[in-house]
Design a protein around this nucleic acid. Structure first.
Lengths: 249, 249
DNA sequence: CGCGATATTGACCTGAGTCAATATACGTGG
DNA sequence: CCACGTATATTGACTCAGGTCAATATCGCG
């Protein structure tokens, strides 16, 4: 039995040359809002990015720092968080390669509205926000694509607001597990493994609860046969069971 | 003493001709993302809008309805809400003239992610989302402006997530009063009157709590001399006092 | 093998939700 | 213009989900 708790996560080995110029084109072509571009154009834009690697847990930028850069993830995962005066932390999102973060606005006085931190080791491609903006200003289709993605994120943040306002801790955890199953999931024998290291504490910060409550609730889910879980990992064994929890009154 | 509780709100008289063609140009010129346009261009775009009035409390569209229209508020206030399966309601935002809502996405299968309802009587200008998109696709500067506004709303939704995750009912109410003071406030003798009819129930739905808790908390604020409040209105008498509540541990 | 980080579990307590009774404002019609 | 009725708001009593504090267990690394 204890043997089954050993982590089934595959830890990708991310090295800082993964976002070096030679692999860039392939990576950028997969980013949603670059995907429509011709090779020549993509190549030209690719020249404008700088690459930069971060160790796991390293801070990319802090909330309230003057915002200057626009980032695209080449490899690894990035987490976005906000802090309260009282030191409490809320995790807003966990991003996959191909997703963007940082600043889009050209206003010089603007500050980052969240903290970005490497969740695993990460390679990013970045450019000044003014450079990105000038790219968009001559490519309306691309600007609309970025608008679409931003709108999508707005809807997702509003969904989180609804969750927090009206659902129990149990429901919010079920929801985040389903969401992450969708985003990071990987079929693994009987279950859907969430292929990203994630602690109870992080799940708590994602759902606006405490580490203890998250742990208690996951234990219950496991007893009920909905998930398998261990240190830093969760695998969903009953999608239906979790979905049923969302429907409860 | 009871006399002072009488509503100090000025109810604007909104008639359906307020968004008729002759007043449109003036209205549209005030909408942030139209503000940079030349008169001729604005006039051309103005032709593409249809006008439509709604009575207070009338539904403009429902969450999950197929999304087809893009709206700009000409006069009056619009509230955006989401519902849970259990019938509970969450209010996401309350919009002023000049703000937009509805759909921007061109995807035909998309649905509205929230319910839009006239809060006061309202005049709107609307057009098909595909028409709006084609306007944006030839005007990159305007698309960027819309992107900026959407990003702003995303930040604001994320702020709400933080509030709900980490702050008490008292703090959330103080926050929404300050926010609305900023958005709808009007100097009024000793205080800042929130110039929009708003019930305890609505304040509760905006902050993810219940009518009773909202009422209790506002009573306390009043005892502490932070606000004056009555049926459907609130006036802030101590901005500093409310801000201090946000800082509490 | 042992240590530090992570997770679990228990006991307790409190903020805020629920249910219920009452009060007050404001529009309506007599 | 006043009295009444209804929607809105207030207040009290009770309950409980989930936060807090604390002790212990377990994993996986060095």
């Amino acid at each position: 039995m204890p043997g089954r708790r050993k982590s089934p996560l595959k830890i990708a080995n991310i090295t800082s040359d993964m976002c070096a110029p030679e692999s860039r084109l392939r990576l950028l072509a997969q980013v949603p809002f670059f995907s429509g571009l011709k090779a020549a154009e993509l190549n030209e834009i690719s020249q404008l990015f700088h690459d930069k690697g971060f160790e796991a847990e390293e801070i990319i930028y802090f909330e309230a720092d003057p915002a200057s850069q626009f980032y695209v993830i080449a490899a690894g995962k990035v987490k976005l968080t906000r802090h309260t005066q009282t030191g409490r932390e809320v995790m807003l999102d966990l991003l996959n390669p191909g997703e963007y973060f940082g600043s889009l606005s050209p206003l010089p006085e603007e500050a980052y509205s969240e903290t970005a931190q490497a969740h695993t080791s990460v390679c990013t491609l970045n450019m000044g926000k003014d450079v990105f903006r000038s790219i968009l200003s001559t490519r309306p289709e691309m600007a609309l694509k970025v608008l679409e993605i931003t709108t999508q994120r707005l809807v997702s943040a509003q969904e989180m607001v609804r969750q927090l306002s009206a659902h129990s801790v149990e429901q919010r955890l079920a929801y985040i597990l389903l969401k992450f199953g969708d985003k990071f999931g990987q079929k693994q024998g009987k279950g859907l493994l969430i292929q990203v290291p994630i602690s109870r504490e992080e799940l708590a910060k994602l759902t606006g609860t405490t580490t203890e409550s998250a742990s208690r609730t996951l234990s219950q889910f496991q007893k009920d046969g909905l998930i398998q879980a261990g240190r830093q990992w969760v695998s969903i064994t009953s999608l239906e069971g979790l979905k049923a929890i969302l429907q409860e009154v």
